[in-house]
Each structure stands twice: as C-alpha cells, then as structure tokens.
Amino acid sequence: MNFRSLGLVQRGFSPVVRLQQQQIRNLVVYRSSKSKGGIRNPDDYLTSGSRKYELNEDNLKHIKGYLSSIESGKYQLPDRLLLQVITHKSFAHGKLPYNEKLSILGYSLFSMTTAKFALHIAEVSKARDVVDVVNSTGFKLLNRNSMLDVFSSLTGLAKVVFWKNPEPLNLDGASALNKTVERNTVLALIGAIISQHGTKSAEEFVINEVIQQAVKSDYFQPLESTA
C-alpha cells in the first residue's frame, strides 16, 4: 500500500501514524498450491518427510535414547537444545533455531581432539618423534569426513534430522540425506555437549564414542591390513 498515492502524506500524517497504520491489517495464510504474495500456513512446510516439527517426545526419543544409553546418561541434553541439534539451517528458511553455530563449535573441538588423541597414541606407543604422528595414516583417517558418517549411520542420527530435502520428489528424505547435513548434526551434538557439560566431557565423548564407534566398525580395517 502506498500512502503517498492515497494522499495521506500531503494531508499532514506524521511518520508515526503511518507506521501505526501499517500494523492494522489482517493476516491470511493459505494452504495448498503456491500463491504469489501469500503467506503459507506453517503446518504445510514445518515437516520433514512424514514428521512434523514440534518439541515432542516422538521427535526426540531416538537421540535421547542414545544419549541416555551411554555412560549412564552423562551426556544428556535439554529437549530444546536437542531439537536445535537436529534442525538444519535449510529447514523452514532458518526461521527456527538451527544447529549451524553448534556445529562450528563442535568441529573446532573435534579437530583439536583428534590431534591430541593422536599425540596421546604416539606417546603411548613410544614413537621416536611424537609430533610426526600428524603425518600418519591413522591421523588422516581420523580427520576424514567419512568417520563422522560412520558415527551418524551407526547411531541412526541421520534419520531424525529436520532439513529441506533438495530432491522434493523423493518423499523418503532419509534415503537421500545429504552427507553434509549428517556430519553437521554429529558436530552440532558435540557442540551441544560442550555448551552443557564443558570441553573435557565433549573430548571424552569424541574419544570414547565417536572414535570408538569407528574402531568397532570396519572403518579402519581395510587400511589396517595394509599398514
């Protein structure tokens, strides 16, 4: 609406009045197909696959179950933070709390912990030059993205993420889940543990859970045989 075209400005309406008038309007949301200029009903797009975005037990039971199963619930997190952890930036155009900053924090801790862990292993195995472990195969494997993929697939974190599927025709979002979204969720979980339980606990989580899951799986196996 253009107030100048209505002649309101010329009649001496102050800017305050103009802005207050903008507040008085009815908001209509629509369902079904897109309509130019309309506001979509949030119920239509706040879904990922068949799941509706809500702070409820159904959406969080998987990740809560996993966290309570390890170290007798040492790494448990508040529900609201858990929902943020499993929400990617792509979901709902970033209108809802999402995990980007948590994953940045998680990534910086993850890369520091892998270096410290590798140095620890080199020290334990009495290497001649401890710091040279950074050039070892084991260290390179620890820092590959695929190690986070192993963790997310083994723990089933990939299934619970809220994100926008780039393939809208593929209704089963989980099958086409972008690997980057998966990794970001794992890193965000680490970031959330830092925020709630501190750096030391998060380092323990990385070593005793993330790396341990990869060791238990066949992630290191093919290269172990050639090493």
């Binding site: 590798a118 292993i121 080199a122 334990v124 195995s125 290497a127 040279d132 472990v133 050039n135 070892s136 195969t137 084991g138 260290f139 494997l141 070593i207 005793n208 341990q212 060791v215 290191f220 290269l223 172990e224 045989s225 090493a227």
Partner: peptide, 16 residues
C-alpha cells in the same frame, strides 16, 4: 579402549 594389547593394528596406523 586403545591399548597396544587390545588394538595393536589400530595403534600401528599411528606410527610414522
């Protein structure tokens, strides 16, 4: 978890 006795091959990956 990561001792020489339990995971010798894993530990060997870190020798360089």
């Amino acid at each position: 978890l990561y001792t020489q006795e339990k995971e010798p091959r894993f530990i060997s990956l870190f020798q360089n």
